[in-house]
Amino acid sequence: MENAKMNTPSFTVVGSEKEKRPPKTRQRPENFTKEEYRERGIIHPSMNNPEVLNAFRNLRNSMLSKAKAFNSIIQVTTVKQGGGASFNAINLATSCAFDQHRHALLIDCNFPRPSLATTLNIEPEYGLYDFLTGHTDNIESIIYPTGIPRLSLVPSGEVKSEDHVECFTGEKMRLFLENVKNRYSDRAIILDTPPVLESTDAKILSELVDYVVVVIPYKGASASKINKIVQAVGKEKIAGMVLNN
């Protein structure tokens, strides 16, 4: 029953751009205060550290100039655990959502060590894992508004088994990405994934996304390691790298 469900997804792909945005199913949380932004390490337009703010604006602009469309799927990965992929994914998504006419969807694909829900102070009922494993078929049920305006989150959910790799190889994941991409043209989709050299998830996901951004932590990688990443993901897929100091 579960497998059948997986093979024939029951949700309807209604990715028409003209279609109206579905009604919110959840109460949108209060916007973060400046202190909350700072505590969570998230940028905001009035922050005191303009260097960081400008760095993410530059990153966003660079990605927009490279991407064919605003709603391209961008995977953010790193070299090793703790390399700053989640931090860069949240802030890249936040910078995309700075524009009042655009939105951003952040998807936590780091199943081994999910962190985005915690960072954004969300207690999800369902997450991506639940959707991919059939615990829920409703996409809306796994998309959560956040304290950051125009930024939504798809949390990882409660990952209960070690076979999560298979989740990303399934057709459901591909259809899910197509759905969220096609639903809104003004919504950037950012995937936070595990380190590319430590997990096969990132390598699998890189084949489903439009672009990959690799975060190089300060003192986190030697030249040979960077060469390995480029070889693993493919140079044409990598939009660029971010030096995370």
Binding site: A55, M63, G84, I226, G240, M241, L243
Partner: peptide, 22 residues
């Protein structure tokens, strides 16, 4: 190990940004 842009190899994908510590 890479600490700054000065050691960036021209053959690697472009360096899109350098994020300062926050």
């Amino acid at each position: 190990r890479i600490r700054s842009e000065s050691r960036w190899d021209a053959d690697w994908p472009p360096l899109l940004a350098t994020v300062p510590p926050l």
